[in-house]
């Protein structure tokens, strides 16, 4: 039960403001989710490099030797940027596995939040305004971002229970609603070798997409499959390196508003979240249809592209 925001920019001139715009959207959704907040920001890619975002509950200790660990595992080109409880390690794309091994063996526990060419995920417990300021989201630039404020229903209020959930390289998902078959699905996905870190229903939704995409389905197809396999109430906003998707369950009684102008596509659980966006007064505003998949991709033709309905 939560607030979701998402912003997908079409106009490159807005990229410098991505963090500021989405931070405001996120804070506006505090009432819907005061327990924790998180955001995935898709920034600039460095050719040949990937970003690994890690998190620690004791960053002072855990990050002290992170630089050395990264260089040992991934070579001298590795860099580390620390932001509060999170750190972004940038390494050559072919050094992912040695780094993963090194992180797993680190003396202080570290959690990998995301891996990707452009995506960084920041999430923590606490009020959205605090989460946003701890990570300096307001100054970040990028192409698209997806954020979430959480009112925990059945699973614990923890960092890992916060959204977004990463579903694979440069992929993430946020969820509002409540799934009713996530326990059975989790058991099924575990048998397929997918690891879970929380009892959260949304992590199961994310893993379901991962499993489908691993089988060669694209994101739009995986979302369409989700309609058949997930039971309960859900609104998902998902991100890929170049794309931005929205899916609503067939009952569609949780709130969802979308806005589109020539400069962006935006999603909010409520209109309030969209009210600070430039040109919102003249945007096309609508509510996503039940059981329909919406998907926009920077690599595709400009403008929106609906894969399924």
């Amino acid at each position: 039960m939560c607030g979701i925001v998402g912003l997908f920019l079409k106009d490159r001139k807005l990229e410098g403001e991505l963090g500021a715009l989405t931070a405001e959207m996120l804070v506006t959704m505090t009432d819907r989710g005061p327990d924790s907040a998180g955001i995935a920001v898709y920034g600039a890619a460095i050719p040949g490099f990937v970003k690994v975002t890690v998190q620690s509950d004791m960053p002072a200790r855990a990050f002290a030797a992170l630089d050395a660990l990264a260089r040992t595992a991934a070579g001298d080109a590795a860099t580390v940027t620390i932001k509060d409880s999170h750190a972004v390690i940038t390494i050559a794309a072919d050094r992912i596995e040695p780094l993963r091994v090194a992180l797993t063996g680190a003396p202080e526990p570290l959690r990998i939040m995301s891996v990707g060419e452009t995506m960084e995920i920041y999430k923590e417990t606490g009020l959205p305004k605090d989460v946003v300021s701890r990570f300096g989201i307001g100054t970040m630039a990028g192409t698209h971002a997806i954020g979430h404020t959480r009112m925990a229903t059945e699973s614990a209020v923890t960092t890992l229970g916060a959204h977004p959930f990463s579903t694979g390289a440069d992929q993430c998902l946020v969820h509002n609603g409540s799934l009713s078959n996530h326990n059975n699905l989790r058991r099924e996905l575990r048998r397929l070798g997918i690891a879970f870190e929380t009892e959260n229903d949304s992590e199961v939704a994310a893993a379901h997409l991962t499993a489908r995409m691993r089988d060669g389905r694209n994101l739009g197809e995986a979302l369409t499959d989700a309609l058949g396999n997930l039971d309960g109430f859900f609104t998902f906003v998902v991100g890929t390196r170049t794309g931005f998707g929205v899916l609503r369950d067939p009952i569609a009684c949780k709130p969802a508003v979308m806005a589109e102008t020539s400069r962006y596509v935006a999603f909010g659980s409520e209109y309030r979240a969209l009210s600070g966006l430039p040109g919102i007064e003249t945007a096309r505003i609508w509510e996503p249809e039940p059981a329909a998949v919406y998907f926009w991709d920077r690599d595709g033709s400009t403008g929106d592209k609906m894969l399924a309905a």
């Binding site: 039960m1 939560c2 009432d31 989710g33 609603g177 109430f233 009684c253 949780k254 709130p255």
Partner: peptide, 14 residues
């Protein structure tokens, strides 16, 4: 079984 104009605690708050 559900209220006609809200579902879930986040809506209930409103």
């Amino acid at each position: 079984c559900r209220h006609p104009d809200w579902t879930g605690p986040d809506d209930l708050e409103i």
